[in-house]
Write a protein that binds this DNA or RNA. Structure first.
Lengths: 341, 341
DNA sequence: CTGTTAGCGCATTCAT
DNA sequence: ATGAATGCGCTAACAG
């Protein structure tokens, strides 16, 4: 019952050909007789011959597999990203190996090592929220494993990356709130390690300055994205002598927690206090009290672009002219999406 | 710069040993001299030697990879399931290859074929909502690729499967609604192809019968899980002369759509009409008008169990005594979780 | 047009 | 205690 998979050797044996003839016939090698070719293909079909990928991987030193490391799959942001990666991979006949860091640096490192050992041909990575040191990725260069980061990218010029430029989106968001009449606009920002956190604040300040609105640093608080810390952040904001009338939160999940806290504090959402956020989760549509607007960050497009770059790198690797390496650094414009209620 | 990965051969060359000695040394083979062993291990460490997995896969005819095929990752139900699979895989030092069918039968088949060609050692599958024919999975037996299904499982006795027994949960749900005073209880059921759909109705009828409540078949409608069809289903229910005062929906996503429709119809949720559902999504906590209760189906546990069975099968395969194959058919009790408001 | 040979990296059997 | 030889499945260089 141990139905052995057919091999070239088996086909060759039955047809009294050599293995190489069979191999060439199946590959439409020009110097194979039509008759032979037909015979071989015929039998291959009958036997349901499929080349043994593990043998190919071994021989070609290529696994036709790309690894993906991201914080988690439960955020729809990332599962949408996966779709972008899969779509590009499929076109190129590549498989996708997924690993979740669960925002844990050690797990991230471990997965990176495992993927290297698995000999993935390349890596698409969105780093954990606390990753500051990128050696576990940089060192993969020694093994000729290209890495392209997306969304949560290292703050380094010497890596390939695709990220959302939410400066535009942030600008739109703050301006939107100002247009709505808000003057005290709070920010629940992400951890300082995240490059995006700094940028958000810079844009925030720029817009306020341009609009001649006084900047009050006590309106800027941070969360590590956990509910507990978000609640703390909200408490700090609401306990201010002059609490904000609107709050920009780092993403929709944080916004949900913040909104929950505000409601517990008997505040009327979108009346006493309004929220604007990032990500534009589909679940927003089901909420009774959603944020007013979200900056869409196009995870699918980001991930797709990152994967396309990865495949470009595969090809570029073959070209010896590697003197002046250039690092891809793509920004995808985030756009403010206003939720109609 | 093409930093070749170190091989046994390289270590052997440098140390003037034979490849086999090096191999044995690294494997702590008993007949290797301590001195030699130390030397080899030392150099291996210096060179960061890691065995070439592709070579091992090839030689052992094992990829140490399990494939996972499921409808999609965006449902948190499935991303939680992935966690269960990953956790067991990690313990066994296996990698996880993920494919999404997007509830499309052709894609499901294609992924199954791709995984077979990739020579995954085994498969964990949750079938698409329309899959009725299981040949693309059954045929994998010929290649000694065991398959374990979870949650959405084929209605066949001759497969390994882990599913949620929501008969208990369904019973609890209906009884809960009856306790709350409901007598006209609607059901928005899933497609008929899904085994669970039939079971749900059977349990529904049993409970009503036991409680001496008249069964009205017009209270039972179906959806293919899309919003459009769910809206249609709701319309049919609400247009009844005596519409239901409570509705059991096949899962939380459908419940959300149904609730949305009810609200558009100016019904007061949990007053004019109540909902009970399956899955127990975390997002429920953020909703203003959540279902009253959900039947938790424990995706993590289901997937974990399925993966454990798969690894059991790997081991069982080595045992020749395969005369009386037994198919695993595990049921994990679903439990009704009542959402406190 | 087709066959022979070699080699990818490793574990293993057979010699010594 | 160590080395040499073998083979897993496949491709490609080399040889007719």
């Amino acid at each position: 019952m141990d139905n052995k998979l057919p091999t070239l050797k088996e086909i060759a044996r039955r047809l009294k050909f050599s293995v190489s003839t069979v191999s060439r016939a199946l590959h439409d090698h020009p110097s194979i007789g039509l008759r032979t070719k037909m015979q071989v293909k015929q039998l291959a079909k009958e036997l349901n011959y499929e080349p043994n990928q593990t043998a190919l991987f071994f021989k070609q030193q290529k696994t036709h597999t790309i690894g993906v490391i991201l914080p988690n799959l439960k955020e729809e942001f990332f599962s949408q990203a996966i779709n972008g990666i899969e779509d590009v991979a499929k076109i190129n006949k590549y498989s996708v190996l997924i690993g979740q860091s669960h925002d844990d640096i050690d797990q991230e490192k471990q997965i990176a090592i495992a993927m290297k050992n698995q000999r993935v041909d390349g890596l698409i990575v969105s780093i954990s929220k606390h990753t500051k040191n990128y050696d576990h990725f940089i060192s993969l260069r020694k093994y000729n494993i290209p890495v392209v980061f997306f969304d949560r990218v290292p703050d380094l010029p010497t890596v390939h990356k695709v990220a959302s430029n939410f400066n535009t989106g942030t600008k739109q968001a703050i301006e939107f709130l100002i247009t709505k009449g808000h003057r005290r606009i709070g920010v629940i920002n992400g951890p300082e390690e995240m490059k995006s956190s700094k940028e958000r604040i810079i844009t925030y300040m720029e817009v306020l300055q341009k609009k001649r609105i006084k900047i009050d640093l006590s309106l800027i608080v941070t969360t590590d994205l956990t509910q507990v810390k978000t609640f703390e952040a909200m408490k700090n904001l609401l306990d201010l002598k002059y609490p904000p009338t609107a709050i920009l939160t780092i993403n929709d999940y944080v916004a949900l927690d913040a909104i929950q806290y505000a409601r517990k504090s008997k505040l009327k959402i979108n009346k006493d206090i309004s929220f604007v956020s990032y990500a534009n989760l589909p679940i927003i549509n089901y909420l009774e009290f959603p944020p007013l607007a979200s900056v869409e960050q196009y995870p699918y497009e980001q991930a797709k672009k990152a994967t396309e770059i990865l495949f470009d790198l595969f090809n570029a690797d073959n070209i010896p002219d590697e003197e002046e390496k250039k690092y891809h650094n793509i920004l995808i414009e985030g756009q403010l999406i206003i939720h109609k209620k």
